[in-house]
Design a protein around this nucleic acid. Structure first.
Length: 580
DNA sequence: GCCGTTTTCGGCCCGACTGTTTTCAGTCG
């Protein structure tokens, strides 16, 4: 059984948790948490690399000791320290740390005084009112614990970006009408365009005497107020999502926005840089001694540590600080760069609108070309097209003339289990582009699934691979594939990789975008629109692309139509020549 | 546990809110 990076990361997290409960040196604990994060986000498959005889790369914050532990876990699946720690505390106890309000100190007390080891025992202890008598606990704390355990036992969740954005935008609008409110902006992981968010962070600036905080906690959607202060409050909305609001003076806007946008790892790295320069950075500004030297804008925060502005999507401490210092930040792709959309559906299969309506909507979104790519026959639930209906559809596309936008004839053709395509070459050859997609047999082994897709990419008529890992966020796991092999095949054969912008897909993943860029692949950011409204989703695809460091030149559909056609033709020596 | 043209020892990001306390520990982001 191979040990994945995630397994190593999980082992380090558990060590950190157990050390935490055991009152270890906080900086030692931090070292393990840092290593867990670094390993968990690493592209390189560690155990595979070690198995090939390669050495571990130098990882920041991972020294000799932790490197040895990584090797140990990669080889054995565990490590001696973890085994030893598990003997000093019951292993399930780390679950208790996930309860909001419970940290290592309280968990330790609960364990020593009440022998609480599991969520169920915690629940029982709270119901029996045994917790309130403990030192440092009280009735209120006990009630909060009981509440938190109940929701935990039901389930905690993350929200999809597009869903959270709806709640956030509505609430931000509500707050903008506050007395004294100046700026109201959504920050946090939403601003960084993460595919899911755990909570919503909103920042407001206000002069004295404003009522932003009052309006916030009295907002009609609020189910519960978790905390209420002058500068910070937290609420839970009826939808279950938590929202934190921070209010700062106007001059602190930039420092607060930077701080509140995160990520945490990025913030820590930037604060270290500030420290190195004898500066102190907090959410109120940049300080030299007691003197405030900046912080009104985010630019001033970066400038204080000698860096250019770093776009929010890059702020994960994934090399953006080093790139900024070297003047090598990417110029990230923007929504306005998109000239067309290469994946959409119509009433012919499972779309909801006619081809003409889709064309008008795409044009209204500023696009110059749109590919109609309905499903192929195997997808019977979508009334997939057989060659006959596909040819009929081509005729209709020829007849639909919407000035200002060009329609391309395409298909989203199923990749069958053996890697062959669901329609004959003859009809595929008549199209402008062919998107190949996996819609069945998601659970093939990594080897077979990868081979299946590689074979499809080798097919001379294929232009692009749709939603490469096939996951549905929160609903279906990605299929197991060797993405590096797939990306390299796409490069070798001149195929595009899709970044499907549908909020439930966002597939390519951000990490795969970066891999694709490094390998020189071309990505196409497509809406996969099934309705005229869904062209709006392109912004989420662009957000994901930006998280993956993609620039305009990395994205195929930023090209004007003639260039795109040339790419499609060049990379597919086919059709006319073949039929001749 | 990591790290270093000011350091191989002594630092390690920084502040807000809650609840239980009478001045602050614990937790969170």
């Amino acid at each position: 059984m191979p040990v994945h990076n995630a397994d190593i990361a999980r082992a380090f997290e558990e060590i950190a948790d157990l050390l935490d409960i055991g009152d270890a040196n906080p900086f030692r604990i931090r070292a393990y948490r840092n290593a867990a994060r670094i390993v968990g986000e690493l592209q390189l498959d560690i155990s595979a690399a070690l198995a090939r005889g390669e050495d571990l790369p130098k990882l920041p914050g991972v020294g000799e000791d932790l490197s040895n532990k990584i090797r140990e876990i990669a080889a054995t699946g565990s490590c001696a320290l973890l085994v030893r720690l598990r003997k000093s505390f019951p292993p399930a106890i780390t679950e208790l740390l996930r309860i909001p309000g419970l940290g290592p100190k309280r968990v330790k007390t609960l364990y020593h005084e009440l022998d609480v080891q599991t969520l169920e025992q915690l629940h029982r202890a709270a119901l029996d009112q045994r917790i309130r008598a403990l030192p440092g606990f009280g009735e209120k704390t006990e009630a909060n614990i009981l509440d938190a355990v109940k929701t935990r036992l039901s389930k905690a969740q993350r929200f999809k970006l597009a869903v959270a954005a709806q709640y956030a935008d509505a609430l931000a609008d509500h707050l903008r009408a506050s007395r004294g409110a100046d700026k109201v902006v959504v920050a946090g992981s939403l601003r960084r365009m993460r595919e899911t968010v755990g909570d919503i962070d909103i920042l407001a600036t206000s002069g004295p005497g404003g009522d932003v905080m009052d309006r916030f906690v009295r907002y009609g959607e609020v189910k519960e107020v978790l905390a209420r202060g002058d500068t910070r409050s937290s609420v839970v909305l009826k939808s279950g999502i938590q929202v934190d609001l921070r209010v700062v003076p106007r001059e602190s806007y930039g420092a607060a926005l930077h701080y509140f946008t995160g990520s945490k790892a990025h913030n820590i790295a930037i604060r270290r840089l500030a420290q190195d320069r004898g500066l102190k950075l907090n959410e109120y500004g940049i300080f030299k001694g007691d003197r405030r030297v900046g912080g009104d804008t985010e630019d001033s925060v970066f400038a204080a540590v000698g860096l250019p502005f770093i776009p929010p999507e890059l702020r994960e401490d994934h090399g953006e600080i080093e790139a900024a210092r070297a003047g090598k930040l990417p110029r990230l792709v923007e929504v306005g760069d998109l000239k067309g959309d290469l994946h959409s559906h119509s009433k012919w299969t499972d779309g909801h609108h006619a081809i003409r309506e889709m064309a008008l909507a795409a044009k209204a979104h500023g696009l110059a070309y749109l590919a109609i790519t309905d499903h192929s026959r195997r997808l019977t639930v979508a009334r997939g097209l057989d060659p006959q209906r596909l040819r009929k559809q081509m005729t209709e596309i020829d007849d639909v003339a919407v000035p200002g936008i060009t329609l391309l004839k395409g298909i989203e053709v199923d990749i069958l289990e053996d890697g062959s395509l669901d329609l004959p070459d003859a009809v595929l050859g008549e199209l402008d582009l062919v998107i190949a997609a996996v819609h069945s047999k998601f659970d093939l082994s990594r080897e077979r699934q990868t081979e299946r897709i590689l074979r499809a990419l080798d097919h001379p008529l294929v232009s692009m691979l749709a939603h490469p890992v096939g996951r549905l966020i929160g609903a279906r796991e990605p299929y197991d594939v060797d993405m590096l092999k797939i990306i390299r095949k796409a490069v070798a054969r001149g195929r595009f990789l899709e970044l499907n912008a549908h909020p439930e897909r966002l597939d390519l993943l951000d990490t795969h975008c970066r891999m694709a860029k490094d390998e020189g692949a071309l990505v196409a950011i497509n809406s996969d629109a099934h309705t005229i409204q869904q062209f709006d989703n392109l912004k989420y695809g662009v957000g994901q692309a930006r998280r993956g460091w993609l620039e305009k030149r990395d994205v195929a559909n930023t090209r004007p139509l003639p260039e795109l056609r040339a790419l499609l033709a060049k990379e597919k020596p086919r059709a006319s020549a073949k039929r001749a």
